[in-house]
Design a binder for these strands. Sequence first.
DNA 1: TATTGTTATACTCTATAACTATA
DNA 2: TATAGTTATAGAGTATAACAATA
Lengths: 148, 148
Amino acid sequence: MNDKIDTSYLETLLGYNARRASLTIISRFIERMTEFDLRPVDFSVLSLMGHNPGITSRELCNSLNILAPNLVMFLKVFEKRGLVARTPHPTDGRSMGLTLTKKGQKLMQKAEVAALESDASAAHKLSPSEQKTLMRLLQKIYKTETTD
Amino acid sequence: MNDKIDTSYLETLLGYNARRASLTIISRFIERMTEFDLRPVDFSVLSLMGHNPGITSRELCNSLNILAPNLVMFLKVFEKRGLVARTPHPTDGRSMGLTLTKKGQKLMQKAEVAALESDASAAHKLSPSEQKTLMRLLQKIYKTETTD
DNA sequence: TATTGTTATACTCTATAACTATA
DNA sequence: TATAGTTATAGAGTATAACAATA
């Protein structure tokens, strides 16, 4: 299609390659998650909640680089869908402890399996050892960064 | 900071790692490009134009996954800044051939050097061979995809 | 009839300022 | 005073529909 267009310079850039690969993986992920009516952010928030029962909004925001005002809306929708329960924090009266409901847990169980399947299909051209290497190198990049 | 939050599951997902790494690299890139008043999209468009003189809007859109209506605005700004010249296409009266002006060329020469520097600094924790491997694996992922 | 480029517009995502209640 | 959560809103980024000019 773009036969005669030379993209060789852009392909020498790490940022270009990372963004293209990231978009490829995520667009596949988005498609896969429509079944559960979850966007990538929704998935991350709910997954973190499932693995960290009682987590607070602030902790979610810090971990996922989400701004507080934006999280509020997400949580409202989750509550309306019956996926999340908010219970008063035992010691801090300002905070709310967030947990998945039974319904939320059942949904995320299936969604997390689907997520791994989506990953596997996006990386199907890579050998298991290449996939491991890729994950390691990616983490090496973003984990060396200060969060803010 | 997020000491007690368990993100281990998310870190097993390729998509999560790719997105986090991609954001790390790109936020650094964005910062570096403020000097030239270029966003990542601007850089990609102008770079592709520099390496493919006479490229058309449609070709840019296809190569970079940009929608035509959005490109129009970018090009207007580029023209106003004196970075891009539009000349009638030799054979197709509908198309316009896009080229960098002298000013655009000088800007992109410096910007492309800065881009490579930004990349290098984002990947400073990776050895040269690791960087090469990372690029290869990323390309393997998005190049196996059909563009549309 | 199909395609390039364009206009206008809508929608989503992300960001900022200001408020409340608790600490 | 500082922080957690909330409200309202603004901005950037991305998407859709419809049109004129040319093929």
